[in-house]
């Protein structure tokens, strides 16, 4: 008994120490840095300033924020539209097929996301697989320029993040009581009504969980816009990366990070408010 609680205290404090050292402390450092000024000789000048927060609401930054938001939101929506039928199909499939489908979904995860993004380049570049096939089939006469556009970024985001939408949706839809659909049919509901009034509202916790899991990374992943979007499509993730590594303006990068964290915190707070603890099972 005593031994047991000693182990509990040990493992819990290990987690707390770990989180404190590697999550809370860096966050606090970033938070402090965001209120400092950039220096010419040193990375930062220890001088309190609200300049960064003033600058971040200027039009250039606002543009990046809005564009990131738009790209992330659209990617999330497309993910939802693509993932829903798949998740529904998986949830209604026979048990023996369920596991195969799950496996097919998870296998790509075993390859690094970065490598898979390079693979996308091979598909969509001007002389890539997609254009070669379409040209050969005579469907198009000039190669489609996808690389280095927002479309390319979104293809990359959707491809990488789709499983994060499918899995919570599947977890939710698998718990759906299909007798409710029989009852709806018995009462004369059309397929459309069954979906929009029964299935979709009941799967809302799964939809919200999936949207959070896709939207937040879509705002922050920097290597996908970097590789597929090029210089033209600067998103929040790359902005922060550029500020830290290229321009060496650490305070500004910190401020951008803090604002991003605040936005994401807002989303999580909204999700928490909208769902019960039972619903949140879809997220984990």
């Amino acid at each position: 008994m005593r031994h047991d609680s000693a182990f509990k205290i040990f493992s819990l404090s290990l987690i707390w120490v770990w989180l404190g050292l590697f999550a809370l402390l860096p966050f606090l450092l970033v938070l402090i840095t965001s209120f400092l000024e950039p220096g010419t000789t040193h990375l930062i000048q220890y001088h309190f300033s609200l300049e960064n927060y003033h600058d971040i609401f200027s039009s250039i930054y606002a543009k990046v924020f809005v564009r990131s938001f738009g790209v992330a939101a659209l990617s999330t929506f497309i993910c939802l539209v693509l993932a829903y039928p798949f998740a529904f199909f998986m949830a209604t499939a026979q048990d023996k097929y369920k596991n195969i489908l799950l496996l097919l979904l998870i296998v790509p995860f075993w390859t690094s996301s970065l490598i898979r993004t390079y693979a996308i380049i091979a598909v969509i570049k001007t002389k890539g697989i997609l254009n070669t096939i379409l040209l050969a089939l005579g469907i198009i006469h000039h190669p489609i320029e996808i690389m280095f556009t927002n479309t390319a970024v979104m293809i990359g985001l959707i491809y990488n993040l789709l499983p994060f939408m499918i899995l919570p949706l599947y977890a939710n839809l698998e718990r759906l009581d299909f007798q409710l659909l029989e009852a709806a049919r018995d009462l004369g509901a059309s397929k459309l009504r069954m979906f929009f009034q029964i299935v979709f509202p009941l799967s809302m916790p799964g939809v919200l969980a999936g949207c959070i899991l896709v939207f937040l990374p879509a705002m922050t992943i920097f290597y996908i816009p970097d590789l597929l979007g090029g210089a033209k499509s600067m998103l929040l993730g790359n902005l922060i990366q550029t500020e830290f590594l290229t321009i060496h303006n650490w305070p500004m990068g910190s401020t951008t990070s803090i604002i991003l964290t605040a936005i994401m915190g807002l989303f999580l707070w909204f999700y928490w408010r909208k769902t019960s603890s039972a619903d949140r099972k879809d997220l984990v």
């Binding site: 009581d177 007798q179 409710l180 029989e182 009852a183 709806a184 018995d186 009462l187 009941l202």
Partner: peptide, 13 residues
């Protein structure tokens, strides 16, 4: 015809 189901199948939402 209409059915009353064993588990009632009421729409919970």
């Amino acid at each position: 015809v209409n059915t009353v189901f064993q588990s009632y199948a009421l729409f919970p939402h």
